[in-house]
Nucleic acid binder design. Structure first.
Lengths: 295, 295
DNA sequence: GATCTCCATAGGCTCTGCCTATCACAGCCG
DNA sequence: CGGCTGTGATAGGCAGAGCCTATGGAGATC
């Protein structure tokens, strides 16, 4: 049984005429006759009663017709579905990102992507780099925005650097302005507000303090980005955050750059090395690269 | 898109393995790979992400899979349906017959047919030959048992003679036994019970009386076969009926043959000339011919 | 690092499906 | 009644599709 044969069969059933059916399906009449014969032979039953000028379906033909129509309709649907996915009119991207990136970088990028491809659903998973890497490997994510270096580097993941972000110190606008720029060493003994475990920023900041020979002291710890900013605003301490986050934090926060060499972190896009990400994910990757490299 | 390609696609989707899928569908692995490629090319999207040892469906593949399964299932169903019809495991025969034949000939023939092909539905339409011929031409009947000569002969119908039936006179067992055998002329003035219009027997009997120079007189007229026999049984008059019907009429009816040349009628099977009857109808025709010629 | 596994590619063969040309048959009309 | 027309079936030839075997090449394995 061939799709072509079913197309021919339906055409004959609907026109009740071999020659006109052949025209309709753009094939010569002998070819159509031959294929109908072949179908009849394969099925073991005549499908049409061929009376001069009165082609009619046999009972076998009657039984086949609705199924043939449905098969052809399903095939059409299949073509459409797949092409809509391929043309990014539908689909989804499962994107992981660290909390600070969800707050800082993602909103405008996702907005741009959504404007380009309104049919694509965006599923965001917020988590620490470690979790994101695991989810990528499991296939639960298509892409992830992570901070380099990865906590668990693996050849199974490919990373593309997106941008380098300066970290800055934020403090309450009500507190006395610090001498600018602040050095890491200046943070010794300063009350700090710290993110929960899992934030790359936490590890990075703690490591930087230890490199200066002291252990940071936390007034409050465990919050998410917004909470931390709120605690800083309330005067509970200072915090080290990406400049991009600090930039949108509002007037009641004082933003102070770090003295050279300062602290930077590298944001990268990661995906599995073994399989190409889905089409929609590749497109999001493109938008991300363009929006970060361009500005 | 080819059925074969969908079969291969489903096999790969289910085994997640090209080589094993190829074995399962009894084709070489390169052929299967090639067909999957061809399908992907036609649809314009990759269906599988081919990671070493980890073949997975892409989102396009996920979209296609259920449709592919349904298409293949429908194709199987189509094959089954058509073959069941062809093998007479299912189907129907629309058979027309005159009332006297429904009473006399049909029961045992239909019983034999049903024993042979229990899956075939038998749709009987009882009517006069005239109506039956019209229904045949309309395509509303596959076959009809009619009495020859046809009221409206036409080259569009083919008739096959089945048997010749003697007509006999039935009277109440309570009445005095008539001199045997009875001549048509003896019926002059005898009260008769007559079928409704539309019965071939009515036309035939009236014509025979007129040929003898008299008009028959009816005590009761208008009934179906059973009613007529009942009226005769009740002593309302005599009736002319097929011997086959009289034979099963019971003891309280006296059956008297007609004197030579008697009255006979020819029963024939009619179907359209332009189209072959469906397979099941041809089979019923065969059973009818065998059962009437054989005995 | 040799081997193994597994998918992709290349080349050749066969068979299928399509085409044109023609036949066979019925109905129509002058 | 004989040619004409319309319709489906048949015949022969050709191009392409699909399958095969053989081979390549990239990870995984021991």
């Amino acid at each position: 049984m061939q799709f072509q044969q079913l197309v021919y069969f339906v055409a004959v059933a609907e026109t009740r005429h071999f020659t006109r059916a052949a025209e309709r399906v753009h094939v010569s009449q002998p070819s159509l006759s031959q294929q109908i014969r072949a179908l009849e032979k394969e099925l073991g039953a005549e499908l049409f009663s061929r009376a001069r000028g009165n082609i009619a379906l046999t009972d076998a033909g009657e039984a086949l017709l609705p199924l043939a129509r449905r098969i052809l309709a399903d095939a059409d649907t299949a073509r459409h579905e797949v092409q809509e996915l391929a043309q990014l009119r539908r689909g989804r991207v499962r994107l992981g990102a660290t909390p600070s990136l969800c707050t800082g970088l993602l909103p405008e990028v996702l907005r741009a992507f959504h404007d380009l491809y309104p049919g694509i659903r965006l599923l965001i998973e917020e988590g620490g780099s470690h979790d994101l890497v695991r989810e990528l490997a499991r296939g639960a994510l298509d892409l992830a925005l992570v901070v380099l270096p990865l906590p668990t580097p693996s050849p199974a993941l490919t990373t593309v650097e997106l941008l380098q972000e300066d970290l800055v110190v934020v403090s309450s606008a009500a507190d006395p302005a610090p001498r600018r720029p602040v050095r890491i060493a200046d943070l010794e003994g300063r009350p700090m507000v710290m993110f929960r475990h899992g934030y790359d920023l936490r590890e990075l900041t703690v490591a930087a303090c230890r490199a200066e020979g002291f252990e940071p002291s936390f007034t409050v710890e465990g919050g998410e980005m917004d909470a931390v900013l709120g605690f800083v605003r309330a005067g509970l301490g200072v915090a080290v955050v990406p400049s991009m986050v600090a930039a949108r934090a509002g007037r009641d926060l004082r933003v102070t750059a770090l003295a050279p060499p300062g602290l930077r972190r590298t944001i990268a896009l990661a995906h599995r090395s073994d399989v190409a990400p889905p089409r929609a994910a590749r497109e999001l990757q493109r938008v991300l690269l363009r929006s970060t490299s361009g500005g």
